[in-house]
Structure formats: structure tokens, C-alpha cells
Amino acid sequence: MTESDPAVLETAIRAALVLVSGLCVLCGYRVIRGPTNPDRVVALDAIATNVVAIAVLFALLTGRGLFITVSLVLAIIGFIATVAVAKFVTDGEVIE
């Protein structure tokens, strides 16, 4: 955070952090209860996306660019995981 930022920005970022963390907990419920495995996969993917959002919000709050790198790498890994599971669900094998 720099001096030129409006005061409401920090409040908004903190509120968004709490909101996204709460969403992670709700997704955790879906992971545990799941009824089916695809439900769990979608919930885990949503958690990964939420963690990316948390990293970006934290980078905005602290002004440290390294959390952007963290979010970038997490987004890439999350994408690969989702594609691999989707191929496994439809084809039964990841690499043919």
C-alpha cells in the first residue's frame, strides 16, 4: 500500500480476503462431503483459484511483487491439475 491509495482500498482488500477465505472453507465442505468424485475435483479446483485470489490480494495489501509470482505458478499448476483430472474422468487415462 502506498500513500496515494484511497483509504477505502485497504478496507476493501481486507474484506475481500475474509470473503475469499470463507469461500475456501465452504469449498472444503464440498470436498469432504462430495457426493461424487467430480464434485470433489471441482471443489479442489475452486480452492486453488481462491488461493490464487488470496495471493494477489495479499500482494496488493503488502505491495510485495513476489506474491504475484506465487499466484502465477499456482494458477499454472491448478490448470494442469484440472485438465489432467478432466481427461481422467472422460477417457480413463491421462496420457495416451
Binding site: V73, I76, I77, I80, V83, A84, K87, V94, I95, E96
Partner: peptide, 16 residues
């Protein structure tokens, strides 16, 4: 690790 994930996408999309 990231280079390997790029290769993994090639393997998943185009076959071994």
C-alpha cells in the same frame, strides 16, 4: 517443475 508442466500439457494434448 514449470518446464515439466509445459511438457506434460504437450503429452496430454498430443499423445506420448
Amino acid at each position: 517443475v514449470l518446464t515439466t508442466t509445459a511438457f506434460a500439457i504437450v503429452y496430454m494434448g498430443f499423445g506420448l
